[in-house]
């Protein structure tokens, strides 16, 4: 297996506050890896640092073996990295189909028809404006949009937060389909059941540093780690 994404010892700042203090991790091709941690631990900032929204001051980022350290967000996006932010960034005044069309990029492995096959709700609602969608539908649209850019690596920031259990199941199944199509996924998620079901490996981050790393089997067996770093039990 080769690496879809690797970051090494990255440091990022918001103004003067040093929020990412040397995070290293990797995602192999076809893997789903989660990044866990309490609120404010630096999960979202890690994703932003990888995408280029928050360019790291030190360290290195590689996407499919190509170093992309310091690239602006639009270039990492063009080179196979998609970030679906927590707020989803749906264009509320555009229709669902317009949201999708402006996200299409030549050379992407997904067509609009493929997308509608994975997300049939989006086809039903394609004439609706983005602002009229439910939270779950917005999340599906955000993932669908990311896929139309033809990513090798997909980063999802809390994709099922605040959604009803039945929608969570639907989105989990969709994420599996995306992985099965060969897209590597880095997932930030608080819902441990979802993480355990989807992921191959887990990183736990605290105060801007990776403090624990485990395979999914180890993680499920290990109560002490969950109590210590996450303060919850699934």
């Amino acid at each position: 297996m080769s690496e879809a994404l690797r970051i090494e010892d990255i440091h990022s700042y918001y103004g003067k506050s040093h929020i990412i203090q040397g995070v290293s991790l990797k995602v192999e091709e076809g893997e789903i890896v989660t990044l866990l941690g309490r609120n404010g631990a630096g999960k979202t900032s890690t994703l932003k640092s990888i995408s280029g929204l928050l360019p790291p001051k030190r360290g290195h980022v590689w996407i499919s073996g190509e170093e992309t350290t310091g690239w602006p967000a639009y270039r990492t996006a063009q080179n196979g990295l998609a970030l679906v932010p927590e707020h989803r960034g749906i264009f509320g005044l555009l229709t669902v189909e317009e949201n999708l069309r402006i996200s299409q990029r030549r050379g992407a492995q997904w067509s609009l028809a493929d997308i509608y096959q994975i997300f049939p709700r989006l086809q039903e609602r394609r004439k609706n404006s983005g602002g009229q969608l439910s939270g779950g539908e917005q999340q599906m649209l955000a993932i669908a949009r990311a896929l139309l850019g033809g990513p090798k690596v997909l980063m999802l920031d809390e994709p099922v937060e605040g959604l009803a259990p039945i929608i969570v199941e639907e989105i989990v199944a969709q994420i599996k389909k995306v992985r099965d199509a060969g897209v590597s996924i880095l997932l930030v998620e608080q819902n441990l059941a979802v993480c355990a079901e989807l992921a191959d490996r887990h990183y736990i981050i605290e105060l801007g540093k990776v403090v624990h790393h485990a395979t999914s089997a180890e993680f499920i067996a290990d109560h002490t780690v969950r109590d210590r770093y996450l303060g919850v039990d699934a």
């Binding site: 995408s51 929204l53 602006p72 967000a73 639009y74 996006a77 063009q78 998609a82 970030l83 932010p85 960034g89 264009f91 509320g92 005044l93 555009l94 317009e98 949201n99 069309r101 402006i102 996200s103 990029r105 949009r145 850019g149």
Partner: peptide, 17 residues
């Protein structure tokens, strides 16, 4: 659509490449 989308969020436009 690109122009209209840009007036809603430039950050999201950057994330879309």
């Amino acid at each position: 659509a690109i122009v209209r989308a840009g007036s809603e969020s430039t950050e999201t436009m950057a994330l879309l490449g």
